[in-house]
Design a protein around this nucleic acid. Structure first.
Lengths: 338, 338
DNA sequence: TCGACTCGTGAGAGCGCTCTCTCGGGTGTC
DNA sequence: GACACCCGAGAGAGCGCTCTCACGAGTCGA
């Protein structure tokens, strides 16, 4: 009935227009070198003329690949993790690398319950070739389940408990230790910490860094209050800390936001920073340059976490081996608060 | 050779296991009601036993749907637009609604040049059923091109120039006017503004709101410096403003970040806020509660922008009509800076 | 000059699903 | 009791692509 189908051109359409077979057109589309140059050229022209674009569904049906990677963000991460900057930073890093590799980024926001199943369905349905899992809280079973499903997985942040999948993380403890050395070097002797949530590895390791850094001070007792990485919790924790010991002269906060909160409490209670109390944060988010005074903090390479995550998952998807873990360096950025 | 294929179960596998035909299993999977209950039940059991999950590629090959929606974020938006909070906020809103509708969210980060083509390829390849376009700079041609490609599109923020696709935006001008009334009501007479980029509608309309709000002050001359929505530009713009007129007693900044920057400059130059100079921002991001003093600002419903975007694109994809535009209300949140 | 290769190309199967069409058998009507 | 009807279920085509296999033509050595 219809000689010229109205819809999108298919391989068949292109083949007819170029006077070649579907197979040869497919070869050209996929960059095979075994096609005679002039034939390839006329096929390319036909593709351009017709505006042909391969149908990815048809392609993945046969190749069993989808050329897309899922990035799973726990709901909490979308607003909590240390700072909002973490989330966009990682996404951009991942996106950048995936774009170069011509892979799609499928975003799965894991809001609690139901999403767990939904994610597993996606993965079992092979909607994606691989999964990047960002900053898990607690001992989430998702990494393990995904691994069991036979899908390549990389996580951001070492999982609590035994690590069963490759991960990318940063040197939490050594970064904090550098911060502690800096405080001690400034002559601070009563150093407290505002720790992060202890159900996250980042929270735990930064606390561990504080404790080990404290060993440089013989006889010093740990002074710890826990926050949730957000600003308000830093404000509150600093109050509790000062109640417990009014003579604190140094504070390490496990996130910049909490450090900023601490700064506010200190200012409100009449302490001068850094004169009376030196404060160091962790993350080095944009806002750290704008606190009052500008925040000395432990820098972590957020963007690189994203690019590394993407690189690893691409290698796994390609069937290559990857290191069980990549731990990126952190370093102290000295500004005015310490 | 192999009676029991090792791979994932297909409809065929399930059909054999349940003693039914592929068609009937398909009916059950897709919730058709015309299947005898006992048959449906045994099929469901077979599905559960085998862990069957439909292959989305095969499905979209025949249905011509992909059940996924692209969210396109210009590179700049991922770090600039008003505040980082905007980006995650919109994503979460969009993701939330799409998840409920069982659609996938495909994130396309449009980093300048090449991505333009890549996006068009995606869309022409029908990798997605619809597109949500976030906060375009300038007179981007993308909305128009997408529309021409016959793909449902919704944009966030009214595009500059003629709007050819449905959009979601907020009441910039009237929100700013409320802010201006507030300043005038406080007795301020020399009111300046730190405007946003004038190649973005948000920047223009907020400036328009300032100008129209200024009309309540007979004889008042507009005092405008332009920023880029970021904090540093607010710091700088406020300096220029004070050079031009040291007696400024009110400032409207087109973003909270710029307002925070202005606050810093004012403090540094010895102005008291709000006593000497009252300051109002726009956005009502989290950080606005923590500026010094806490920022009076125009609230915009970031999360709702996301949910509305998703709702509209879902309706378009479903073939329904949608309003050419949805403009969400803004309102003034009075804190201490004005 | 002939057989053995290589190289470019086409034919055709089949990926897993949906959906139309068809058909058998049960029900209802007069 | 005969006919029309409806409902549940199966057969089979086909979505657009990749990839194996086969084949014809050209190349080369003996």
């Amino acid at each position: 009935m219809n000689e010229t189908p109205a819809g999108r051109p298919t391989l068949e359409t292109v083949a007819r227009a170029a006077g070649a077979s579907r197979a040869t057109v497919s070869r050209v589309v996929n960059g095979s070198t075994t096609v005679r140059p002039d034939v390839a050229e006329s096929i390319r022209r036909a593709i351009a003329d017709l505006g042909y674009v391969p149908n990815p569904a048809a392609r993945s049906l046969v190749t069993q690949r989808t050329d897309s990677i899922a990035l799973i963000l726990p709901e909490s991460a979308t607003r909590v993790f240390s700072d909002d900057a973490f989330f966009p930073g990682v996404i951009r890093g991942v996106g950048e690398v995936l774009e170069k590799a011509d892979k799609q980024l499928v975003l799965l926001l894991a809001s609690t319950q139901s999403s767990h199943d939904r994610i597993l369905r996606y993965v079992h349905g092979r909607t994606v070739d691989g999964v990047v899992l960002a900053s898990m809280h607690g001992a989430d079973t998702l990494p393990e389940e995904l691994r069991a499903a036979g899908v390549p997985v990389v996580t951001s942040g070492r999982p609590l408990g035994e690590a069963t999948v490759p991960y990318i993380d940063v040197e939490h403890a050594s970064g904090v230790e550098a911060a502690m050395r800096h405080l001690v070097g400034l002559g601070r002797r009563r150093i407290a910490t505002i720790a992060g949530p202890q159900d996250m590895v980042a929270g735990r390791e930064r606390l561990a860094g504080y404790l080990s850094g404290l060993e440089a001070l013989p006889g010093a007792v740990p002074l710890v209050e826990e926050g949730d990485f957000m600003r308000q919790s830093g404000i509150d924790a600093m109050e509790r800390l000062l109640e417990r010991d009014p003579d604190i002269d140094g504070v390490f906060a496990a996130s910049d936001l909490m450090a900023d909160g601490a700064l506010r409490t200190l200012r409100r209670l009449g302490r001068r920073v850094p004169d009376d109390v030196a404060v160091i944060g962790f993350d080095d988010v944009e806002a750290a340059r704008f606190t009052d005074p500008p925040l000395t903090t432990v820098h972590q390479p957020i963007h690189e976490i994203g690019t590394r995550l993407a690189e690893q998952i691409l290698r796994l998807v390609a069937g290559e081996e990857v290191e069980a873990s990549v731990v990126l360096p952190t370093h102290l950025v000295v500004r005015e608060s310490a």
